[in-house]
Design a protein around this nucleic acid. Structure first.
Length: 519
RNA sequence: GGGCCGUUAGCUCAGCUGGUAGAGCACCGGACUUUUAAUCCGGGUGUCGUGGGUUCGAUCCCCACACGGCCCA
């Protein structure tokens, strides 16, 4: 890169060249640590002969005295440098935390010259004894220095950090370097996921992997990404759900299965949508949606307790209390209460469209009944469901995979769970009558044709074949893990729980490939 | 898809009525052997997102585009 001739990059290049001329390998293959920063500090503090009492001066190590304490080799990224002539203090950060290294020329000799060619961001190995400095800070006293990796670009500023969200998402590593709390949030996300695994494993569920590349993108109302397999000369899709494969496994005789994996939906990007996201689906034979509801309450409250140590989690202006049981509301009743719309009073789609328009909803010409009801629910009910709540018994037209609710024609045994106005779970007593399932699929296909709506479920012939062999009564569940992670880690945007959220490619004109140009 | 806002030094940000840009940190040079955003002295390192237009002159006004954010759909 020619621009490195001068400026900030250039000064680092000059230092790199100088190091090489002096025979220093700026990228050595290894450095054996004796401990990480946190462990070395903890071990030193534990081994201190006398706990320093308040107001009592700490022992100040002399070069000779220092030899008494065990030698350590510690390593990390240089996060700050306080250089004062023939002594210097460097903060070294590794994955465990930060340790201060004290460098003194009389101890390091020629090694001390390395300091001139170090920059913030470089990785450095330090060997020497641990000690407390005059101000009481546990530090490693450098007897040798080893450059482990030269950083060629300056880090974001240490005090204000990185505010530019675009850089934060595009170059997440800088975000992580600049703000350790980001790392904490992602570590919490990871614990949410491992907590779910532990919970389900503990209940006898078997984790399975089903295809991501599928011939039919079924199991949800969503538009798929498509691709092509050359050897098979077949169009394939990225899965939009794992539902139909997991049910095949229930047919096959596994009683409790789950999959925690990425699904892909070719839709817009906003605060709670990313085109790829992590979905948990579980299926339990001989269970119904009431049992699944209890499992969801138990799972999420357990995970909240594990990750946050409490079931009351602050989120925005609210405190969300995940303590079970969560209220159960009938969708039909709740919609009537909130909007005055009695769905059963509008059996004709046209009448429902007029009613929705009267209520101020913008209703396009391509709104199917299912979409319309979804819009009513998401406008009048969902924003009000701040505390964890189950919404029960959805209209059949928007739930082609759920079993009919006895005694309530036109409705199915389905619930969705909400918290902070966001949908976090979706569950059915699964439809297992193959003839009814075929009819439901065909209804969906005709809706797709009629409304030209690509976000309608698709008929999967192979799945119907599986159902024809017989599937036991089953309770199924889907949980959006990213949204759950948002709630449990207090993040307002899905991009803050995804390490690498989807972003538009920069410089569209220059970097477009042939596929893009078609669009 | 529509509306509004943003894009200035490596980072965080100022920049008046149009007259070729400035601060802190970072960086560069110097002093300093116990610092904690070290301190002190000296130095501004820039394609003002991109491309057009208006103008004697544009970071500033106009248009288009790119990327991002928020709101709406």
């Amino acid at each position: 890169m020619p621009e490195r001739e001068d400026g900030l990059l250039g000064s680092r290049q000059t230092k790199l060249n100088r190091l090489r001329e002096r025979g220093v390998d700026p990228y050595p293959p290894r450095f054996r640590r004796t401990a990480d920063a946190a462990a070395a500090i903890a071990a030193f503090e534990a081994a201190e002969p006398v706990e320093p009492a308040p107001g009592v001066e700490f022992r100040i190590a002399h070069p000779d005295a220092a030899v008494e304490t065990p030698q350590h080799s510690l390593a990390g990224r240089i996060m700050s440098m306080r250089v004062m002539g023939r002594a210097a203090f460097l903060d070294l950060r590794d994955g465990s935390g930060t340790v201060q290294a004290m460098l003194r020329q009389n101890l390091l000799g020629e090694d001390y010259d390395l300091l001139k060619d170090l920059d913030l961001g470089d990785f450095l190995g330090v060997t020497g004894p641990m000690l407390r400095t005059r101000t009481g800070q546990v530090s490693i006293e450098a007897h040798t220095l080893t450059l482990l990796a030269k950083g060629m670009r300056p880090l974001p500023e240490k005090w204000h950090g990185l505010r530019d969200v675009e850089i934060r998402y595009r170059q997440r590593y800088l975000d992580l370097i600049a703000d350790p709390e980001i790392m904490t949030a992602f570590a919490q996300r990871s614990r949410v996921i491992s907590g779910i695994r532990r919970f389900l494993d503990g209940r006898g569920f078997l984790e399975v992997d089903t295809p991501i590349l599928v011939p039919v993108a079924a199991g949800a109302h969503a538009r798929p990404f498509d691709t092509h397999h050359n050897a098979l000369n077949q169009r394939l899709y990225l899965r939009i759900a794992t539902e139909l494969y997991l049910k095949r496994l229930i047919v096959g005789g596994f009683d409790k299965v789950y999959e925690l994996g990425r699904v892909f939906r070719n839709e817009g990007i906003d605060q709670d949508h990313n085109p790829e996201f992590t979905l948990l689906e579980s299926y339990e034979a001989y269970a119904d949606y009431h049992q699944v509801m209890e499992m969801v309450e138990s799972m999420i409250s357990t995970v909240a307790m594990e990750v946050r140590g409490t079931m009351q989690i602050p989120y925005g202006e609210e405190v969300i209390d995940f303590t079970p049981p969560w209220p159960r509301l009938q969708l039909k009743d709740e919609l009537y209460r909130r909007s005055g719309v009695d769905l059963d009073a509008y059996p004709e789609d046209a009448a429902l469209v007029r009613k929705a328009a009267d209520l101020g909803l913008e209703v396009g010409p391509r709104e199917s009944r299912g979409r319309l009801i979804d819009k009513l629910v998401s406008t009048f009910i969902e924003p009000n469901l701040v505390q964890p709540t189950f919404l029960l018994d959805y209209p059949e037209v928007m739930s082609p995979l759920a079993k009919a609710k006895p005694g309530l024609p036109g409705y199915v045994e389905r619930f969705e769970a909400f918290a902070a106005g966001m949908e976090i779970a979706n569950s059915y007593t699964e439809l297992n009558d193959p003839a009814v399932q075929r009819a439901r699929f065909e209804e969906q296909e005709s809706i797709r044709q009629l409304y030209q709506d690509e976000e309608v479920d698709r008929l999967d012939e192979d799945f119907l074949t599986a159902l024809e062999y017989g599937m036991p009564p089953t309770g199924g569940l889907g949980v959006g893990i990213d949204r759950l992670a948002m709630l449990l880690t207090g993040q307002a945007s899905i991009r803050d729980v995804l390490l690498f959220p989807q972003m538009r490619r920069l410089g569209a004109g220059a970097n477009m490939d042939e596929q893009d140009i078609q669009d």
